[in-house]
């Protein structure tokens, strides 16, 4: 879909992180966790390109003014890092943006009896939140959230409200245990049993560590990747990542935008 969208609300949820709610056509309700949207934050040629963001949630709400029809929405949890996200953070309710999406494949949501371990850091929590919101109550879910400092630890209240066991680790120990979230995950992998899958989204070093852990423990692992993007639809080949069998003579490049952003960690080359 490609649609004009009105800002409903745009609030800072933690220093440097905001949650924006945007109106969307009804079909947004069919979006799958792990899918993303490409947002044009303003008209004109600066910034030139759309910005990719994972879908934090979708839903339906009743606008405050009387007799207006129920509206569908999409939410994005974003970190202010540069030009595009700064402009986004300054939008007010009733401003407009232009949205392309949902794009990409989304997580393979698996069987209900499989325990689902969500591992994320920073804005990587966005798609995991959507996942948790859809599956809470029907599947065993645990969440592992990492960050540099406590400000970078997002969504703990949301996860707890969904009744999900949540483990937190920060580099400086200002929230949860001190150290890497992968250490906390490792403890879990060593103690628990039964069939389980890890769903991970966050900075590259974290994904690499999680993929390695899962491989050692023989557990399925899906990772959601990031890459600089221009088109978002598989046309420009700007966003590729190396597949397992990649070599110079037999290239195995996958588009993060179209073949991903979610990949089976075992399908990728982690050189």
């Amino acid at each position: 879909m490609h649609f004009k969208s009105m800002v409903v609300s745009n609030i800072e949820v933690s220093p440097g992180y905001c949650l924006i709610r945007l109106t969307a056509p009804r079909q947004i309700l069919d979006a799958r966790p792990g899918q993303f949207v490409m947002v044009r934050v303003q008209d004109g040629i600066d910034p030139l390109l759309r910005r990719p963001f994972g879908i934090f949630d979708v839903g339906t709400f009743s606008p405050e003014y009387p007799e207006s029809p129920r509206q569908h929405y999409l939410e994005i949890l974003y970190k202010i890092v540069g030009k595009g996200t700064s402009i986004l953070s300054m939008l007010h309710s009733r401003d407009y943006v232009d949205v392309l999406g949902p794009l990409g494949n989304g997580f393979d949501e698996g069987e209900p009896e499989t325990e689902k371990l969500l591992v994320g850091g920073g804005f990587g929590l966005a798609p995991l939140h959507f996942f948790a919101r859809k599956h809470a109550g029907t599947a065993g879910i645990k969440a592992f959230i990492g960050g540099k400092r406590k400000e970078d630890v997002l969504c703990v209240t949301e996860f707890e409200r969904l009744g999900i066991d949540t483990y937190v680790a920060t580099d400086d120990g200002t929230l949860g245990s001190r150290g890497l979230v992968t250490s906390v995950l490792e403890e879990q992998l060593e103690t628990g049993f039964g069939s389980r899958t890890v769903y991970a989204c966050g900075p590259e070093p974290m994904l690499r560590a999680v993929a390695g852990l899962c491989k050692r423990h023989g557990i399925g692992c899906q990772v959601s990747l990031e890459a600089n993007m221009a088109c978002g639809v598989g046309a420009c080949l700007g966003c590729v990542t190396k597949g397992r069998s990649h070599s110079e003579s037999a290239p195995d490049y996958r588009c993060v935008c179209k073949d991903g952003p979610v990949f089976d960690a075992a399908e990728l080359l982690w050189d």
Partner: peptide, 25 residues
């Protein structure tokens, strides 16, 4: 023959434009 193209990152936005080094994948 199929062509692999260049390593990542391959694109970056610049003022009023963008640079690409897809490498003709």
């Amino acid at each position: 023959k199929p062509k692999a193209g260049n390593p990542m990152p391959r694109i970056v936005e610049t003022p009023g434009g963008m640079l690409n080094a897809i490498g003709l994948q």
